[in-house]
Amino acid sequence: MYLAAQPGSLQLTQQGQLKHFLTTEGLPKTLLTRILDHTESFLGVENKKVKNAPLLRGKTVMTLFFEDSTRTRTTFELAAQHLSANVMNLNVKHSATSKGESLLDMLHNLEAMSVDMFIVRHPESGAAHFVAQQVKAGVSVINAGDGRHAHPTQALLDMFTIRKTKGAFEPLTIAIVGDIQHSRVARSQIHALNTLGTGEVRVIGPKTLIPHALSQFNVKLYHNLSRGLKDVDVIILLRLQKERMSSDLLPSKHEFYQTYGLTAEKLKLAKPDAIVMHPGPINRGVEIASDVADSDQSVILQQVRYGLATRMAILSMTINTQDKQLFSEEARTS
């Protein structure tokens, strides 16, 4: 009754098309590449006179955010609007769940309003999977971040940024620095980077911020930043949450900056043309020195720009799959 499908089969149709977009884990390289190619076609939409494409016309997209977010939510909303969808935002903090309604009851009530796609952010790992298992056939779920588990659209926009700047993944050495343990972004990036054939993926951080069992990640672990950065092509910094800066995980943000903060000097250890990435929002003087964040090697603002196109690509690929699938089911039964 509760036997959950494996992530791959839950988010893909039998033909291998996206039904939901929940995690980068288990998605084939061809599909990830197709998303990146598709993103390319949406690039620069914000500069066009007529921004909207009719791909989601008549569809209702609902953002369902159980955690605070400004950037991700706005980008999703804009992406859906550019695709001509009707967009609704539910501020869950002021909704019925605060009155004790369960996530499931809330979902069924919202479904009754004929929503075609839910974009979900939730503090618990697996929440997006749970929602995807419960919605009616034909309704899509996009994971906008669940607990520590996955943030696949962020990972895809990062992959797009890397491909756009560096070309092929195979010759690259990529280092992810900081709080891996609590990062859904890092998990999604690692799966995507490995699937896309990255030469070497490194993770760098103190033991308190690294998962105890890293064996399934196919990464090289470094506790020393200088060693870990040697000759890398891409440096991805992760945001350190404020509540973790001075806690039983780290003594202080000062010490974190001293040991794991990316300064101009440390950046020199990487290849001369290495790029610096960060999912944002950045903590200057904690994960990254101000001058590095604003340097030519930083692609942080490009990431933000590519975020819109990536989400347009994913939204349109997912909802169109659902349309095709429903149509073929109707054809079979009629």
Partner: peptide, 13 residues
């Protein structure tokens, strides 16, 4: 359990 599965799924251990 604090093993590879929970690490991948991002579950508290």
């Amino acid at each position: 359990h604090d093993g590879p599965i929970a690490a991948r799924l991002g579950l508290p251990v």
